[in-house]
Simulated scan of single mutants.
Amino acid sequence: MTPALTRKTALLLTVSPLLWAGNAVVGRLMVGAVPPLTLNLLRWLLAALVLLPLGWRVLRIGGPLWPRWRRFVLLGGLGVGSYNSLQYLALQTSTPINVTLIAASMPVWMLAAGALLHRERPRPQQLAGAVLSLLGVVLVISRGSWDTLMQVRLVPGDLYMLVAVALWALYSWMLARPSDDSAREWHWSEFLLAQIVFGLMWSTLAAGGEALAHGGSVEVAWSLPVAGGLLYVALAASLVAYRCWGMGVAAVGPAIAAFFSNLTPVFAALLSAALLGEPPQWFHGAAFALIVAGIVVSSRR
């Protein structure tokens, strides 16, 4: 029986997409002020420091984390290290609307990862939904122009985001198929902190490579807006959004929560219009409709 969707749960599941849309807009605003891979490192370093008083027990020597360190190296690399770094790289040349719309194509990548890695055969409804979602992504990449699609001129940011979504699908399947169930009993702060700690290793390597590519150092144009943006992505888009999402999913399950995740492009379009002067185009609305239709179709039984 499907749990009832209360107003409180609906609010929790709406807050997360709103905060993640804000993350995309802030990432766009940071272009030129903070290098993207450095931004990702600073974001999760600050988030770890804030989370440490709550989840420090998971890092104790002899604790339950260390026998599973290989698993968390992958989780941290895919979730904290790769996805977020690629998203900030994507925002260097793409827009928050495009980035969040491409991210909303997740059902395609989820089905592919499940079929290839776990032999989860998709149902016909899921395949139909995946086609609709993929059409939405193609519409975003082509900018609504058939000539552009035929020329296959992709903005580098669009390609970065496609790779990021594929890696997030792998990350999600790792969460859904844990090697054991004991980690499910951890406090949410412990589970997230464990991922962040190992993700910081990957983020540090990526930021180091970015520094080498810029002659051995990177410059951050510190200012009050930059500091405020960093606080937002570290606290609101990371800790608050993850916590609200976890509580919402626990209340009604992932099937209902998935519909709320597709509010992110809508919020990104509204925030971009208000803050960046980038009003949404007709193809953004059409692509969003296709992606939502794909998810609705794929979830029908």
Rank of each mutant, 00 (worst) to 15 (best):
A237D: 11
G248Q: 06
V165D: 02
M247Q: 13
A221M: 10
R243P: 00
A234E: 03
G229P: 04
M201G: 12
V252E: 05
D180Y: 15
A257L: 07
H187Y: 10
G253A: 12
A241V: 04
A234N: 10
A255N: 04
F198E: 01
A221Q: 09
M161P: 01
S189F: 07
A227L: 15
M174D: 04
W168C: 04
W173V: 08
L212T: 02
Y171W: 10
M161H: 05
S182P: 00
L200N: 07
V252H: 06
M247K: 14
A213D: 02
S182H: 13
C244L: 01
L175H: 11
S238H: 13
L205G: 03
D181P: 04
L170N: 02
S261V: 09
Y160L: 07
A211D: 01
P178Q: 09
V165F: 03
G228V: 14
A241F: 03
E185C: 11
V218Y: 02
V218W: 00
G229L: 11
V197F: 04
E185L: 12
L212P: 00
N262M: 13
A206I: 04
L231F: 07
E219H: 13
W188V: 15
L192W: 00
A251S: 12
V197C: 06
L200P: 09
F198D: 01
L175V: 14
A207Q: 04
M201E: 05
M161G: 03
D180N: 13
I196A: 09
D181W: 14
E185H: 11
Y242V: 15
G157M: 06
Q195M: 10
L175E: 08
S189W: 10
N262F: 09
I256K: 14
L230Y: 05
E210N: 01
G157I: 06
A169M: 06
F191A: 15
G209I: 11
A221V: 14
A169E: 05
D158A: 07
L159C: 06
F260Q: 06
S203A: 15
W202P: 02
F198G: 03
A166P: 02
S182M: 07
G216H: 08
G199F: 08
D158G: 05
V252T: 12
N262E: 04
G246A: 04
W222K: 01
F191P: 00
Y160V: 10
D181G: 15
V163P: 00
F191N: 08
I256H: 05
M161N: 01
E185V: 13
P254D: 00
Y242F: 12
W202D: 03
L231Q: 08
R243N: 01
W168R: 04
C244N: 02
L224W: 12
L212D: 04
A221R: 12
E185D: 10
E210M: 07
A236L: 15
E210G: 03
V218C: 10
V163L: 09
Y242K: 03
L231W: 07
L212H: 02
L162F: 06
A236F: 15
N262L: 13
F260Y: 13
A169H: 03
A241Q: 00
A183F: 10
F259E: 02
L235E: 00
G157H: 02
A234Y: 10
V218L: 11
L162G: 06
V252L: 11
L224S: 09
G228C: 13
T204V: 13
M247W: 14
Y232V: 14
A227F: 10
M174K: 14
R243M: 12
R243V: 14
S261I: 14
A236G: 11
V165P: 01
S179C: 08
Y242D: 01
P225R: 11
M161T: 05
